[in-house]
Computed example of a mutant assay.
Amino acid sequence: MRTTGAARQYADGPGSDARSHQEESPMITLTDPAAHKVRQLLDAEGAEDLALRVAVRPGGCSGFSYEMFFDGDVAADDTTAEYPDHVKVVVDPASAQLLEGATLDYKDGLDQSGFAITNPNASRTCGCGQSFS
């Protein structure tokens, strides 16, 4: 398991030796509203020890679809990043390639509500925003 990039500052804390972690950018970025909402959901579930797993699976109307769920089973080859509000995000190696540079946001408004992923690797997305190619 490794912690990556900009998210590393939250995992290491003050006074830690950041040289023990690889210098990379995080595979996916969480906005502050997304991290806050994930923390609210974890607190509501009473699941402090779980991480948010973000994955890409074959399927959907454009070829791939996003999957997000809370997971306590982190594999040794998973990429892990910690964000504000002590939110951990886990991505498997195959999904990490497709999520490189993506952003997970949360909106709570009249015209949009829920989580949304903006992925620079997607050449095409469907109307629902849940699948891409």
Rank of each mutant, 00 (worst) to 15 (best):
R2K: 15
R2D: 15
A7D: 03
A11S: 12
P14M: 06
S16R: 09
S20D: 12
S20M: 12
H21L: 15
H21W: 15
Q22L: 14
E23I: 14
S25G: 14
T29E: 10
L30G: 00
L30Q: 01
L30P: 02
D32V: 10
R39T: 05
L41T: 06
L41D: 09
D43P: 04
E45G: 06
E45V: 02
G46V: 01
E48D: 14
D49I: 03
D49V: 05
D49Q: 11
L52V: 07
L52D: 00
L52S: 02
R57T: 10
P58N: 09
S62W: 02
G63F: 03
S65T: 11
Y66P: 00
M68D: 03
F69C: 07
F69D: 10
F70M: 08
G72R: 07
D73L: 12
D73G: 09
A75L: 13
T80G: 07
P84E: 07
P84H: 05
V91C: 05
S95M: 04
A96S: 13
E100F: 11
L104T: 02
D105H: 05
D105V: 05
D105I: 04
L110T: 15
Q112L: 12
S113W: 13
S113Q: 15
F115Q: 02
T118V: 12
N121L: 10
T125S: 13
G129M: 08
